[in-house]
Each structure stands twice: as C-alpha cells, then as structure tokens.
Amino acid sequence: MSTAPATRKPNDYKSDLKPIWCPGCGDFGVLASLYRAFAQMNLDPVNTVVVSGIGCSSRLPGFVSTYGVHTLHGRALPVAMGVKLANPELTVVAVGGDGDGFAIGAGHFPHAARRNVDITYLVMDNEIYGLTKGQVSPTSLTDQKAPSTPWGNLETPLNTLGFAIASGATFVARGASFNTKTLTELIVQAVEHKGFSYIDAMSPCVMFNNHQEEWKELVTDVAPDHDSADKVAAFDLALKGGFKLGILYRELRPTLGDKYDALLERTPDSDAAAMLDAFSARKGVAIGKPVA
C-alpha cells in the first residue's frame, strides 16, 4: 500500500539523478511531459515501470522515481511485454529512440503491436543516432550527410506511424518535445488506452540534427474533424507525412492480457502431481500419439 501523497506533483516523479542530455535536447521536453502526465494520472510510482533500450533517450528511466528497466539496445518492447504479462496491475511505459526502436529493435515492434500488449511505447524521434555522434538512423532523410553517409543518405526513411498502423497498434499518435501541452495530453491518453499505444515524439537532437526551428514552423494539429476510428483516413494522414500532432488512430481490441485472462479462466486447474500421474508407466498413455 502506497504511503505517497494521494495527489502527486510532476516533481514527485523526479529521481535524484540529473539528466545527462545536452542542453537544449528535445528529450528534456519529453521527460517534462512524462512527469506531468504521470502526475495528471496520479500514477503510483510503486506500480509503474518505465522500460527503455539503449541510446540517449533510453537513459530516461534513471530520471524517473518509478521502477525502471534500462535494457539492451533494441529490446525494450519484449522486456516490457514480459513485465506487463507477469503483473497486469502495473502501468508499463517503454521509451527509446528511433534507432533503438526501428533499426536494431524493429523486429519486435510489429509483434508488440499486433499482440496488442497493454503498454505504451514512447519514441523520442530525432532522426539521428545521437549517442554514437551523429550517424543516420532509419528515420533520417534521404540525402542527409552524416559521418557514416558522407556522400548523403541513400536510403528512404521509415514511416513509423504507417508501420504502427499496419502492424496493428491500437493507438497511434504524434507529439513533439517542444509542444509539451499536447504531448502531456497524448501520453495521458496513451497510458489510459487499453492496448498497445505508440507515440512518435519528435525530439530534436541539438548536437547532430537540429531541426527544432524548422519543425516548430511545420507542425500543426491533426484536423478536429479527423476520424481516428477510420483506419484508412489514419493511414492517409500517416503516409502523407507532414507534421500533424495528435491522435491518428485509435481502436479498442482485446489486449493480449485480456486473452490470457480468458484462457486462464477457461482452463481447469491442475498441478504438478496430477500432471506427473498422467505419465504413469502403469496407466500408459494413448497409443498413436506421443506422450502429451
């Protein structure tokens, strides 16, 4: 039972570690939005787990007073799934960067989405590898010059919002580190959403890929008449790209946890003793089938 105050303030979610990010980094805005969103929902830090991969943004769990798992590069989502399935009472938020989530970790993303694991995945998308000093990432623009692409990026950036919708994510939104009001609201809605919620948070890297001023000019809100239940319209919005902040897509579908609950509900109880008995040499097992 929690002894923390009934109503928590954003500061209550700060750990005693100071962020190690560069001054001006977009991730500060994302972290501030996360503190505010947690406070708005009055989440109990004892029942909240923030999971990350590796990268600048993946250091975030260290700056939050909840439980946290700083996993390996690309592995935040399967670890977060394990945490959530093990204890469905927990609020689980996975965070990380675009390289972490969509290069090395891309193999996990569609599966977390299609399984509809009831977690939130908040990606701080700066379109670059910051921690390793500025190489291109899967979301970097074509022709972008970077240390590993001195001739310009030959590849086409991944449309993560379209990827999320196609994969079966049930909540897909875009926010920006420099618009903390909207981002805070999106995080609240994503965490309260039952199912896999994905937020692409534009979060400029001031050292290696500083699009901050440009992005600020470009962003607009998702049109108020956009129907977020309309998958085709959501795809349309995602594929057109642009800088629409807000919820693109939302649907309610049973979560993986719901499915397991139902499975456990309809499975008759048994134990090791009964299972062992079924192997009894004397009783034998049905012929024609391997022992099961």
């Binding site: 787990v49 399967p78 945490v83 399935l85 093990a86 499975l263 109880d269 090791a272």
Partner: peptide
C-alpha cells in the same frame, strides 16, 4: 499445461524476444 497452474507461455518472435520477455517477467517477480 502451464495455464492450468495459472502460468502462461508466449511464442515469441525470436529467441532474443524470448529471453527478453523472460527477463521482464522475472524483473516483475515471476
């Protein structure tokens, strides 16, 4: 068999996810 004892199994997308999810579940006390 495991669901009969209240536990669950997940067929993961690869072995990396298998152990990652196991580590997550163990972190959460299982």
């Amino acid at each position: 068999k495991l669901p009969a004892t209240g536990g669950i199994t997940v067929q993961c997308e690869d072995e990396i996810a298998s152990l990652a999810s196991v580590i997550g579940a163990s972190y959460a006390g299982k």
